[in-house]
Amino acid sequence: MRRLFVGLCWIVIPWYLLSLVVGTRVLPFPHAVAVRFVALALPALLRHAAASLLRVLAALLAASAVAIPLGLAMGRVRAFDRVFSPAAYLLYPVPKIALLPILLLLLGTGDISRVALLALVLVFQLLLAVRDGARDVDAHYLISLDSLGATKADHLRYCVWPLVLPRLLTAVRIGSATALAVLFFAETFFTRYGLGYFIMDSWMKLAYLDMYAGIVAMSLLGFAMFVTVDRIEQRVSRWQG
């Protein structure tokens, strides 16, 4: 809690100073934004934040559904790695945002395109984290399991997965930040819901207080996601001390 307060001070104090310098019409004081945020929270922001969150969660689910099994296979079976790693290395650096027009053409202008875009942002990060985690399993753990009569499925359950999970969560945390940034852009097209839409719409209406409230909401959404992943990571990585 104390760390959160210190973190807020680092944002709010410079914000006040900058407001004084550039003028409150362009950059309103934080307390004015806070009041507007509370006023807007229930009627608008919550609905928009929920839409954004659902898109991120759907993308995370879709990316995980592909990245986890494929990453485990690539990490444990060399043939899979030889086939899929070159493709992953080729596609990973492509800026996924550039694929939005293609996705809109292929999948339509609905939410599926936006979710697919976010999933593409996440999938390679998760895939490589899972693959590396599965590949780095120390052989002596597997020998130890074999001595207990373990099967390949037991290897995955009792050894590979517990070692992969912390890496996967780190990738989710890092990937979520990128996903939110891409989401903001993706929500400015063909939708009337989502924090990206709300921020851009407020900007075009010159409703700056609303716009800033939207930015704060987006920041809080990212914060909530980070904290949640952090908590899960702490829980599953307790053994690391």
């Binding site: 002596h140 130890s144 009792y158 050894c159 053994w239 690391q240």
Partner: peptide, 18 residues
């Protein structure tokens, strides 16, 4: 591997996550 045989490894073979 045979269930009648038990093995204790040099590095103990414990799983740090359990």
């Amino acid at each position: 591997p045979d269930p009648r045989i038990g093995l204790v490894l040099q590095q103990y073979g414990l799983f740090p996550w359990f």
